[in-house]
Design a protein around this nucleic acid. Structure first.
Lengths: 209, 209
DNA sequence: CGAGTTCCATAGTGACCGCTCTGAAATAGA
DNA sequence: TCTATTTCAGAGCGGTCACTATGGAACTCG
């Protein structure tokens, strides 16, 4: 539940120090979950990638679920920073374009797995991990909420029509992001994804002005 | 490899007959994979849903991989029928609209799991199932190819502009389908998905004429 | 230097995984 | 009815799963 509270500063004063870089290990865990998914990544996969033994992993991160959620939070980045980026864009259309192009770029990185961790890692799973799936769903929902808020701001500013279906417009952007994740995993390259982004933005009301 | 050949008619003449409806059992297997994914569905999950014992499952379907691929083929339906439906539509835009609305409807059915089996069941997985993931990717790719062909037909007929990026337009439709699968799984209802479809189709060149 | 604390690696734990061995039961053809 | 063939259900195969008990090693503090 409130596992984010004691996480930041549980710093011990005495005792043997950590023999590995916790942050670097978390990064490797994130990349492993990104590539193989939550349930379909084994502890052995993780310990191998992170370069630590199983007991060290459990001491440092709790268990597989908490490690995954921490990795997912690291992947998602600071929600406030995303909200700020959306707000800083001149228009909601610019904000959406920035979201989509950065997604298309991130999904086709050379040094990372393809696609989106949040879209693929818990896309399916047993009922035993329903709570983890819900947590990731909530992160996605948070992005959608912030995007809708940014669009609504443009409606209220008179930039977008008053009768606009804000949820549908935001939903289109979210759907393209999740869809591009699948297609990037299928091997589609970055220019193709960016072309999809530009085509999709043609659906934006009066964005072309 | 060529497991589709001897499948249709391996009918034995003697011996104890099957005590269950193979087709109905396959249907239940499909629904189970649809809900829980490929690797994250256990044999016990399957035998429970199908109402058969493990040895019966293996005798009738081979192994987990072959059962899944057969279920996926059943889910995808006849590719020729889909190609025919695309061709029968008056325009490529109508064909795309039909694809998208039927996807939005199928992803929010009352009697089925939510989302798309082909989009979610192998969205992530260990490297041990890379061949299964590739098989599902190929099915998705087949849909994209047929959609591009239908769009190209409209370009050649002068309905769509000659300089149209066909791959990008088809990719947009495919991305929306995969994306709606995720959002349907997140709980989005049918009217919301259909609103996304209509908004997205605003990006279609001169579809509104 | 101890005492106390924390992390280390080895070597497991029971539970579940996909899958199959076994022998009885049910059919078709002789 | 007898034989051959196929499916049935129960029990269990080796392997992997997430996770941990244990005892020694490395640190801080007094």
């Amino acid at each position: 539940m409130e596992l984010a509270e004691k996480e930041a500063v549980p710093r011990r004063k005495t005792g043997r120090p950590l023999s590995f870089d916790r942050d670097a290990a978390l990064e490797q865990a994130m990349l492993t979950f990104w590539r193989y998914g939550y349930e379909t990544t084994s502890i052995v996969d993780l310990t191998t990638a992170m370069g630590v033994t199983a007991p060290s992993l459990y001491t440092a991160f709790g268990d597989k679920k908490r490690l995954f959620l921490e990795a997912a939070r690291r992947y998602a980045g600071d929600p406030e920073a995303m909200a700020q980026a959306l707000d800083d864009a001149e228009t909601a259309c610019d904000a959406a374009r920035a979201m989509l192009t950065s997604a298309a770029t991130a999904f086709t990185g050379e040094a990372t797995p393809r696609g989106c961790l949040l879209a693929s890692a818990t896309a399916s799973g047993s009922s035993a991990s329903a709570d983890v799936q819900q947590a990731i769903t909530d992160i996605r929902g948070g992005v959608a909420i912030r995007l809708r808020a940014r669009i609504t701001r443009d409606v209220e500013a008179g930039i977008l029509p008053l009768d606009l279906d804000v949820a549908a417009l935001a939903g289109m952007v979210m759907a393209i992001i999740q869809g591009m994740s699948v297609m990037a995993r299928d091997g589609m390259d970055r220019p193709e994804l960016l072309a999809i982004v530009e085509r999709t933005l043609q659906a934006w009301p009066v964005c072309r002005t």
